[in-house]
Design a protein around this nucleic acid. Structure first.
Lengths: 154, 154
DNA sequence: AACAGTAGTTCGTTCCACGAACTGTTAATC
DNA sequence: GATTAACAGTTCGTGGAACGAACTACTGTT
């Protein structure tokens, strides 16, 4: 196991390796619902509300053409829809279809369960401390809401 | 910002959103060295030692054909090489070329710096606590060494 | 010697990333 | 009202990356 001289893992390696783990769990969960990681991510973002393409692209950190393709494929799969923006003829608003909303909720719930299991060996106080510290990382770095709280989705 | 009723982020959302952040930082760093995220990941794994394809695939969580392609492209870019395994004619050992080792070190160093910056607002004790808890997640879930400690790479 | 299992590649297919260039619309300026 | 800059999103071309099925060649077991 990759460790420092004193056998402890550093903050940097811990962040990268836990990211690797969460990526794998997230992708595995998505696959069970016939989704790719990127499609799952799109659905999770849209659970909160419909978005314009520009805001979606900014939230997901994607080039405009990448988002156009992702939405195209998701629309073709019947998971999202594009509606005209009454206030701006150039713009569209992307929202979940009925089926997309259902799939998003199932996927989100199952992903929450799997991610939660990663800390199953933790005491409640340890989970709270981890949440507080990672929450600080998220807040300090202004990470967009690409994933809702487990309870907030229902 | 997506929070619980009491305004605090939960462990699950914190893990997912911090993963989103680290993914973005890692991908941006890789791009500055002309690498994709997957190529960066391959180089980081190979920094420790050469590996056979089976072990590489298991470490990176990739299908065999995916790894063949990734190694093909990295070999074509002059970053890795395949050598015959003297003990098994079926097997190859993948290692970094001179140029690949150099690029891997630069990429790894810069990525460490950028990831470290994500916790720049933390006190040393907070960093240690975060490292200890995330390290537990890594250990409990047997995450492979896809990224070395900052000092261990030199 | 025969067979099962392993190591890795090839093939076909789909998804996904980006930059450049484009069309059409809106907002600002004169 | 006309002009221009900026914005919203799409198209196109290109390259990377994911997987399963099928394959070849080799190793280990019986």
């Amino acid at each position: 196991m990759s460790k420092n001289d004193d056998g402890r893992i550093g903050t940097v390696a811990a962040l990268v390796r836990s990211t690797f783990l969460v990526n794998a769990v997230y992708a595995d969960s998505a696959r069970e619902y016939g989704l790719t990681q990127q499609q799952g991510q799109l659905l999770c973002v849209l659970m909160a509300q419909p978005y314009g393409m520009s805001e979606l692209g900014a939230t997901l950190g994607l080039a405009k053409s990448s988002l156009t393709g992702l939405v195209d494929r998701s629309e073709r799969n019947g998971l999202v829809r594009r509606d005209c923006d009454p206030g701006d003829s150039r713009a569209v608003r992307v929202s979940l279809t009925g089926r997309g909303a259902e799939l998003a909720e199932e996927f989100h719930t199952e992903t929450c369960r799997r991610i939660d299991e990663l800390t199953s060996g933790f005491a409640p106080a340890e989970r709270d401390t981890l949440a507080a510290l990672l929450g600080r990382v998220v807040t300090d770095n202004e990470v967009p809401a690409v994933f809702m709280e487990p309870d907030a989705a229902h």
